[in-house]
Design a protein around this nucleic acid. Structure first.
Length: 542
DNA sequence: CTAGGGTTAG
């Protein structure tokens, strides 16, 4: 009934199909929701509870949406129905049903065997974790435990992993404690997730401490554990410690020192980043000697390593080798090489390579576009950069803010204010909001105009006001640009005011604002004031 | 997709 109302009076084929679809998918969803509610007779004291109902609804809604989308994509005719209207209708129906289910909850639980009940609940917890609804997932876990059914270690690991991913290590710790005191006992994957969590928030010492307690708890760290810590050490620039660590843990392994491709990849990457391509290559060759199967990530690290070295011909040599060995390059391989070509100013080759990329079925991503558009802008080919932007729009890919900003900046730097602003307007029309970088690019465009064509500094100031009105916080670049603009016009009083403002705000300041002011005072033969600025600079560095 | 490696960056 509600469905007919929601869909309107039309009974076109598409609506009938939607109806059929809804009735097919709805039962399973209802079941899930019912199951959740059937266990919630007592109110939880969990602090996450207030969001529970919303979470369930959005969870169910998401499932429905994705199914609907899938359903739509399978139809190529009768498809001019408005999907948003369908989603609205769906939401409406879901809300009604949730209300009904609430009533059901009070009148009696849904009958089901314990085993299917358990399996469904566990599956819901897993899905909630993967969907980022950790609060609801924890709540459901507690409900299960209160009913005397304890989720297995795998399900707990999903919970721990999600908690660590959002950085709530306190709660992860709490869950793991409960696991240790009751059941299920944490396993190696539990610890690995927890260790990764600490590494992610840069608490390496805690991660290492956790590692050292594993043996006491009767859990043997595995290769994954080692890789997590080796990677974290490398990322902190402690390659030497990483190698030492690896040597120690492998020595404890009764000489069964089987290294794997991931460990080698981590170390190889780190050697390259430390500028030691010989050690990196030694590792690569070692992998072949030990008959370790390489993979595409290892190749990407190798290719990127040579790119970092500026050795583009070796990078392409290994690119060819990987093709010959039957490894299909992925978008990261292409982006790496594309970036290298752009950095070296080989824009023609980069464009050509981009053409190859798109013909081999590797879809370019935002990074591909960003790389090539930025390369083109830096090397002055703003026209071509703009063409790439438009080609994205033709493919219905909405560029991320950074890409728009690069083009706006490109126009600004070559003095084309009208195009800079028209791209900004185009960006807004696609629903992408300006950010601090957008405004900085526009302010730079205006102050550049001001330096050759005295009189436009007020336009830059207008932009600054607009920025504040929109709640975008100016950064050091914004203020530096304003100082530059004021100096260009000789408004030294205003320039000094902005300079003072930077210091009041306590923004991290570099040498640029000092240099701009000093230079200007020197040019004005105001050597006292120039010296004054210099003194301030020296004072800062004390 | 129970846990581990690679590409961008005004």
């Amino acid at each position: 009934m509600a469905l007919f109302i929601a869909c309107g009076e039309s009974s076109s084929p598409v609506h009938i199909q939607i109806l059929r679809f809804l009735y097919q998918t709805f039962d399973s969803i209802k079941l899930n929701v019912a199951r959740i509610f059937s266990n919630s007779r007592t109110c939880s004291d969990d602090d996450n509870l207030p969001c529970t109902l919303n979470d369930i609804m959005s969870y169910v809604g998401d499932q429905c949406r994705s199914k609907t989308r899938h359903w739509f994509s399978n139809k190529d005719s009768d498809n001019e129905g408005n999907p948003q209207a369908v989603f609205n209708a769906l939401d409406l129906i879901l809300k009604e049903n949730l209300d009904r289910l609430k009533t059901m909850r009070d009148t009696g639980p849904v009958r089901c065997t314990l085993e299917t009940d358990y399996r469904r609940h566990v599956a819901v917890i897993r899905d909630l974790c993967l969907g980022g609804k950790i609060g609801t997932a924890l709540w459901l876990r507690r409900k299960m435990i209160q009913k005397g059914t304890v989720p297995d270690v795998l399900t707990h690991n999903y919970l721990v992993n999600e908690l660590c991913k959002i950085g709530d290590l306190e709660k992860a710790d709490h869950v793991i404690r409960e696991m240790s005191e009751m059941r299920p006992s944490p396993n190696c994957a539990t610890y690995n997730a927890f260790i990764t969590g600490y590494c992610r928030v840069n608490e390496l010492d805690k991660a290492l401490h956790l590692f050292s307690t594993m043996a006491n708890n009767g859990i043997r760290p595995n290769r994954v554990t080692h890789n997590i810590l080796v990677h974290a050490l490398c990322k902190k620039g402690l390659l030497g410690d990483a190698v030492k660590f690896l040597g120690e843990v492998l020595a404890d392994d009764d000489g069964k020192a089987t290294s794997d491709v991931i460990t080698s990849t981590i170390l190889m990457d780190s050697y390259f980043k430390n500028g030691d391509k010989f050690q990196a290559l030694a590792l690569w060759n070692d992998m072949f000697q030990k008959n370790i199967q390489t993979d595409i990530v290892a190749y990407n690290v190798l290719i990127n390593g040579f790119c970092l070295n500026g050795d583009i011909s070796s990078a392409f040599a290994y690119f060819c080798q990987m093709l010959k060995r039957g490894f299909l390059p992925d978008v990261i391989t292409y982006n790496t090489l594309l970036n290298c070509l752009c950095k070296q100013g080989k824009l023609d080759e980069a464009s050509h390579f981009y053409g190859v990329l798109s013909k081999t079925g590797v879809a370019p991503d935002q990074i591909s576009y960003k790389t090539i558009i930025q390369g083109l802008c830096i090397h002055g080919d703003i026209v071509k950069a703009r063409e790439f932007l438009l080609s994205m729009l033709e493919k219905s890919v909405v560029p991320e803010p950074h890409i728009w900003n690069v083009i706006i900046d490109g126009y600004g730097r070559c003095g084309d204010l009208s195009n800079a602003f028209s791209i900004r307007d185009l960006m807004l029309s696609f629903g992408v909001s300006s950010n601090v970088f957008t405004f900085n690019a526009l302010i730079l465009a205006e102050t550049r105009g001001a330096s050759c064509n005295l009189g436009h500094i007020h336009l830059a100031l207008q932009l600054y006001d607009e920025m504040l009105r929109r709640g975008i916080t100016p950064d050091i670049i914004t203020y530096t640009e304003l100082i530059k603009g004021h100096c260009a016009r000789g408004n030294m009083k205003e320039a000094e005011e902005v300079f003072a403002k930077i210091q009041t705000l306590g923004l991290a300041i570099d040498h640029i604002p000092f240099r701009i002011l000093k230079k200007r005072y020197r040019r004005m033969k105001e050597s006292d004031k120039a010296r004054d600025i210099h003194q301030k600079w020296l004072l800062r560095n004390k």
